[in-house]
């Protein structure tokens, strides 16, 4: 069931649709502070079309600004809901969502998480299994997400998968970062057969590692 202004749900204060550039659509349900049981709401509003479902009491809206360490792609969630979210039911509570005072912490946190998760669950895992296609796709996505967090550190959130590289290079005109991105682009479009060579794959991983190290200088 998709909420619309023609429906009314006494448990709800507000319903806001949102869309994340690297996470797809979602629906935020805001309930009254005294609300205890959300199972009915969940059943009524969960649908494939509405994407991820988040429910919070009105007094818990601050939680939207707490980064989820297991979903770095959702770091810009408060910006997309507050600035671009579409209120489909009830009150407009978007201005009650706070922003982090020091968004630079998001980049530093993302880099630490990347060193922990990407290296084990993507890099070593794919190199061990020989799944170079998954490795390439995963590294490409992780780089985009790192750029997203780096831009958030400068309070720039309105990007898309298509624009992020250009916006990032404008915000971070560091020649080393630019050269590494160019080298990674070239490595992702190798001549036929190059990808099968282990050196080629490890070379790509090295470029990614160098990119992360250069970016971490910006997080300090």
């Amino acid at each position: 069931m998709t909420p619309s202004s023609s429906t009314f749900d006494s448990e709800l204060v507000s319903a806001v649709k949102y869309d994340l550039p690297f996470g797809g659509p979602g629906l935020l349900l805001v309930t009254h502070n005294q609300n205890r049981d959300t199972s009915g709401l969940r059943k009524r509003y969960a649908s494939k079309e509405s994407g991820d479902l988040i429910w919070l009491r009105r007094s818990e809206l601050w939680q939207l600004s707490v980064p989820n360490p297991y979903a770095v792609h959702t770091f810009p969630l408060p910006y997309w809901i507050r600035e671009e979210g579409e209120v489909t039911l009830g009150e407009d509570v978007r201005s009650e969502i706070p922003y982090l005072r020091f968004p630079q912490r998001l980049l530093a946190a993302h880099i630490e998480l990347s060193l922990f998760w990407i290296r084990t669950s993507l890099i070593l895992s794919c190199l061990t299994s020989g799944n170079h296609t998954r490795l390439n796709a995963g590294l490409k996505r992780e780089r985009a997400l790192l750029m997203q967090s780096a831009l958030l550190a400068r309070r720039i959130w309105k990007i898309s998968a298509e624009t992020i590289r250009g916006v990032f290079l404008q915000a971070y005109p560091d020649p080393e970062l630019g050269a590494l991105l160019a080298a990674m682009d070239a490595a992702e479009n190798p001549r036929a057969g190059d990808l099968d060579r282990a050196g080629g794959v490890l070379g790509q991983v090295w470029l990614h590692e160098r990119f992360v190290q250069e970016l971490s200088k910006q997080a300090r």
Binding site: Q63, P69, Y70
Partner: peptide, 8 residues
């Protein structure tokens, strides 16, 4: 972090 994980 708990409150971020809650969303997951």
């Amino acid at each position: 972090a708990f409150f971020g994980c809650r969303r997951l």
